[in-house]
Design a binder for these strands. Structure first.
Lengths: 346, 346
DNA sequence: CTGTTAGCGCATTCAG
DNA sequence: CTGAATGCGCTAACAG
C-alpha cells in the first residue's frame, strides 16, 4: 500500500520559466532582473521580483554553475576535525572567503574514500579551489592537482612544492622564542615533545628551538627528545617517560598545544606543581590553554591573518589575476606568557 | 602585459564527449559504461574506461545533478563549530551518511548571511536534505522548510514541531541520573548552571534533574540556579558567583561539559579541591573532561547511534520510503563516573 | 531595454 | 547491445 514513489504531490520547485510566465516576461528577463543587470527597467524588475517572491523562487545553483563554470565554493580539507585547532581556522576561513563571495565546503579526512576523492570534487567542478590545512611534507597529490590546474593553497603547513601557494606562520621563529624563553628562565635540562617528523610545523619549530638552544649554550640532550602525532596521548606518554628519567628535565617545549596539554595532564596527574616543578610551553594558543586553572604558555599564530592571506592568494588565482608559480606568505608569531613557564626548581 | 584572461592555456576539463570520441563510441555509451549499466559489452566498457583514464576524465557533478535531481549531499548546520561537541558529532555523521552514499557539506552559523540562506541551499538543489544540530525551541524556519518540502532532521535538539523528524538523547533521564547521584553522595546544598532556556537540552535536563531532587527530598534552592549560553564563561562566572554564597553549594550540575569545565576552572583557580570541596557534574562526555588531571563526571550521549538514527530517518525520506509526519528517536544516556564527583565536605 | 536562440555536460528516452 | 535525439534550468550572445 501507498506505492506513492514520488508521483503524487511531488510539486517540483519553480523555475525561472514559471516566474517569467507569472510576470509576463521572457525567461531571460527574469535572469537579468534577479542578477542585477543594469539594463533593465525598474518597473519590470519589480514585477519579476514580485513574481519570484510569490512563487518562492530560488535559482537552481547547479544549472547556473554549469554555465558560468563557477561554483563559488571552496573545498577545505581537514585531517582531524576533532583537533580544536581546525575549527578555529575554519571560522576564520569562513569569514574571509565569505567576504569575497565564496562558501566553504568542508571535507574531513574521514569523508574521503581515497586520495582520488579530494581532487574529484574539483574535477567534478563542485568547487572552484582547494585549501589544504594539514598536508604532510610528502603530500602525494601534487602532480594530479597541477595536472588538473586546480587552484590550491596550503595553509598552516608547508609542502616542498613550488607549484603551489603556501601560507604559514613563522614556525622557526616561534621555536626560537620558546628556546630563548626557557634558557632565559634558567633551564638547562630541557626536553622536547615534537609533532610528526613529516610535518613542516614540527620540522620548523624543532629547527628554531634547537638552534636557539645551541646559540645560547644549552643543547638539547637527544635522550630528551620525543615525538608523535599531534595528540593528547603523545604529550601524556611523552611527559611520563621524560619524568621517569633521572634527573628529569625541568622544562618541555611541545610541538603544539594539544601535546602540551597532554604533558600538563601527565605532570599534574603525577602530582607535580607547574611551573614549580616543571615548565611547559606549547604552540597555537588553543582556548583550553587559556583557562585560568591551566594558563599554558604558548606561541600564538595569527590565524585570522593567515586565513585572509589564503583567501587572497586563492581568489587571486580564481580571478585570473595571477597565474604564476607558488607564492609563500609567512606571518609573525607571538609569545603568550602564562602560568606554566617559570624558573627551574632549585 | 600578460592580458591572458582565460584564453591561452585554458584547457577545459575533458567531457564525456571527449571520452566518447577517443573510445570511438557515442556519448551515451560512455555514460552507461561508467555508471555500471548492465546492458553493455565488457569489451566496449573496457575501451571506455581506458579512454576515460587516459583523459583523466571525471564526470561533471553539476550536470549530472541537474538531470538526476539529486546532489547526493546533505547540508549540516552547526551553530558554533568552536564547541568541541559538534566536531565529534560531525565525525559520526560523516561516517553514517557516507555509508549511505552521501557527502556532507557543513554550514556553520557564521557562514549564513541570514536565515534565508539555509533554505536557499536546498532550494538551489545543492543539497538533498538538511540536518540541524542546534536548533532553538523557537526555530523560525519551520514553515519555510515545510513549504519547500525539504527533508530535514533535527539532531541533538528538539523543536516543538511535529512536521519534522527529531533525534535526541534521553535528556530528562540524564538529568535524573545526575540528581540521583548527587543525592546519593549525600549532597543537600545543590546548585545548577544550566544552558539557554530556549534549548530543549537545557529544558529537559533541568526537568529531569529537578524532578529527581524533589522525589528524593532535596529540592533545588532557586538562589542556586544559574544559566547562560553553553560556554566556558557561563560555567566560570556561574561557579564564582555560587562560591560567593554563604554557605556555598557542595555540588553543581552543569548544562553540558563546556559549562562544567568552566565551573571546574573557577573552582580550581579559587584554590578549591575537587571533589573534596565541590562536586561537579557535566553532560556530553567531551574529551577534555576525560583527561586524567580533570576526570569530569558526566553523562554520555551515544553520538554514533544518534548520528546513525538521523541518517536513517533522513535517507528514508530521500528514498521516498517514508513521507509522513515527524518521527522522534530517543537514545539512552549513560553516567560516566570520574573524579569530580564525591561526597560533600563535612 | 527586452525577446529569441543557443548551448553548459550529462542521463535518459527511443530507435535500431 | 549501441547510437541519435531530447532536455534538466540557467546564462550569455545576438537581435531588435
Amino acid at each position: 500500500m501507498a506505492t506513492t514513489k514520488r508521483s503524487s504531490g511531488a510539486q517540483r520547485p519553480p523555475t525561472s520559466h514559471d516566474v517569467a510566465e507569472l510576470a509576463g516576461v521572457a525567461q531571460s528577463t527574469v535572469s537579468r532582473a534577479l542578477n542585477g543587470d543594469p539594463n533593465i527597467s525598474e518597473k519590470t524588475r519589480a514585477r519579476v521580483v514580485d513574481a519570484a517572491q510569490r512563487l518562492n523562487y530560488s535559482p537552481n545553483v547547479m544549472a547556473r554553475s554549469l554555465i558560468t563554470r563557477r561554483a563559488n565554493r571552496i573545498g577545505v580539507f581537514l585531517s582531524d576535525i576533532t583537533n580544536p585547532f581546525y575549527p578555529r581556522l575554519v571560522e576564520c576561513l569562513e569569514r574571509e572567503f565569505g567576504a569575497l563571495g565564496y562558501d566553504l565546503i568542508l571535507f574531513s579526512e574521514g569523508s574521503a574514500r581515497g586520495d582520488q576523492d579530494h581532487i574529484d570534487h574539483f574535477l567534478g567542478s563542485t568547487i572552484d579551489g582547494l585549501v589544504f590545512t594539514s598536508a604532510k611534507l610528502d603530500f602525494p597529490l601534487g602532480d594530479r592537482l597541477a595536472a588538473a590546474r586546480a587552484p590550491t593553497v596550503f595553509l598552516n603547513r608547508h609542502i616542498d612544492d613550488d607549484r603551489f601557494d603556501r601560507v604559514v606562520s613563522e614556525n622557526v621563529a616561534g621555536g626560537r622564542l620558546a628556546g630563548e624563553l626557557l634558557v632565559e628562565l634558567g633551564h638547562r635540562r630541557i626536553a622536547q615533545i615534537s609533532g610528526p617528523p613529516q610535518t613542516s610545523t614540527a620540522r620548523d619549530r624543532d629547527a628554531g628551538f634547537q638552534a636557539a638552544l645551541e646559540e645560547l649554550g644549552a643543547t638539547l640532550d637527544p635522550a630528551h627528545y620525543r615525538h608523535g602525532p599531534y595528540t593528547h596521548e603523545t604529550g601524556f606518554e611523552g611527559c611520563r617517560s621524560l619524568l621517569a628519567e633521572d634527573p628529569p628535565p625541568t622544562a618541555i617545549f611541545c610541538g603544539n598545544d594539544v601535546i602540551a596539554l597532554g604533558a600538563w595532564d601527565a605532570a599534574v596527574s603525577a602530582g607535580l606543581e607547574i611551573p614549580g616543578d616543571l615548565t611547559v610551553v606549547g604552540f597555537d594558543d588553543m582556548e583550553v590553554g587559556s583557562w585560568s586553572a591551566i594558563g599554558l604558555t604558548t606561541i600564538r599564530q595569527p590565524l585570522d591573518q593567515m586565513a585572509r592571506g589564503s583567501a587572497e592568494l586563492l581568489v587571486g588565482r580564481l580571478n585570473g589575476d595571477y597565474d604564476g608559480p607558488g607564492r609563500v606568505l609567512e606571518f609573525p608569531v607571538e609569545m603568550v606568557r602564562r602560568r606554566t613557564a617559570g624558573p627551574p626548581p632549585r
